[in-house]
Design a protein around this nucleic acid. Structure first.
Lengths: 227, 227
DNA sequence: TTTTTTCCTTGACAACTGTCAAGTTCCGGG
DNA sequence: CCCGGAACTTGACAGTTGTCAAGGAAAAAA
């Protein structure tokens, strides 16, 4: 679109004509941006609908048709907005990321003491485990798929990094409130919490009522140790 | 089969007849055991063949036919020895477990100092990550599937427990060699190592050459901290 | 040997999958 | 108003999948 504008200006032989052409090009450009935004908004809308079914059935057992049936859309729309199934899933993952990474930021921002941060973190943790179990098992599913499907790896590694940073923000703040520094690396801390969460999630999904309280106990015990 | 023996003895009217009947029943019983053993041996043989393809393609993309084509068997055999696909996969998982859990036992048994244990552990860890990456990504795949498919959960939780115990044996021995006790719970320790390994595995599969040395560094730094 | 049981092969079936092309509806610009 | 393209629907396609039944081969039993 930038090329069009330049082209019009170069071939125009009057200021008025150039202005008109520029105006038309701008209008066109704006229209294209609007169209793009609309397009992306629809993609996200579709991705959100797809996440419902994906969270229910997992990546392997979910077909485009099933996604469509569980939503207000027809299966053709998905093909219209996504080049193929992988494109759709990747869009879902990216969209999921944005939601996930900021989950604990408010707690970190508002907590004024170690206890406050601990309790705020634990409360969010428990709520996440109980209310968003389906979304999180999908995340673990996709991360495993990334070990097989190279197309997922870039996005997955990026999300992993974001999550690691998220955990690091919590730990840093926790240490800061105690006048200390975290005792481990960001990677080790993330591995620890991610491992604990993953294990608790599986137990929770298996119907183990102790999964949530046990996770909270473990984290409560761990936090002072690592910082 | 025990019932048969008792029945024969009850209705038999001579010692000889009873002995003969018992003999026949015993022969039958032995035959059945042999048949069962043969049956199970074949199942494991098939499971082993299936693991090849599963490790290559992952659970989702692997069909019975593909498993059969990559092996010396026809797809019908798998249906003959396994009631369905889930039965096959469960058998694979169980078989996989036995191999996995004893991996570090020799190191633990023979190490006579902290350094020896550390180096032995790290060497095995690196070898596992490099040579058995496919098997391990399959394990992570199946553990994720267990979050969706209830039929997997029992086996997966059991294996997880075994792995946790394995890590605990290493940590306990490491602490013992330093005259200390592990500073964390078995669950937290397993979560930590599992998380680190999983992350390193993904990076390794993504072609990141630093994955293995970084994992080793991290573990080397961590071991003295947690014990 | 003959018969029976176990073991395995083959082929078929119905269901499902991703993909796509042809057609329809809808809307904004001219 | 109308017309062109964007947005969407529908139906069909070729390929794959789990499952299974019918039959053959091989081994065991008689």
């Amino acid at each position: 679109m930038t090329d069009d504008v330049i082209g019009d200006q170069e071939t125009g032989d009057s200021a008025t004509m150039a202005r008109q052409a520029t105006g038309a090009a701008k209008r066109e450009a704006v229209a294209e941006i609007v169209r793009d935004d609309k397009f992306n908004a629809r993609r996200i809308e579709l991705a959100e609908a797809a996440l419902e079914t994906l969270g229910e059935l997992g990546f392997a057992r979910t077909s485009l048709r099933e996604i469509a049936q569980n939503s207000a859309f027809t299966h053709g729309v998905f093909h219209y907005y996504f080049s193929d199934k992988l494109d759709l899933i990747c869009c879902c993952v990216r969209h999921y990321k944005a939601k996930c990474v900021t989950r604990y930021d408010e707690v970190v921002a508002t907590a004024t003491s170690r206890d406050e941060l601990t309790e705020g973190f634990l409360a969010k943790l428990a709520a996440t485990l109980q209310n968003e179990a389906r979304m999180h098992r999908l995340w673990y599913d996709l991360r495993s798929q990334a070990m097989f499907e190279a197309a997922f790896r870039k996005d997955v590694l990026e999300i992993d990094k974001s999550l690691e940073a998220m955990i690091w923000r919590i730990a840093s703040r926790y240490a800061e409130l105690g006048g200390k520094r975290p005792a481990s690396s960001p990677g080790a801390l993330y591995a620890l919490f991610d491992g604990l969460f993953q294990s608790a999630l599986l137990k929770h999904l298996a119907g183990d009522k102790r999964a949530v309280p046990e996770l909270l106990d473990e984290v409560r015990r761990l936090l002072p140790t690592i910082c």
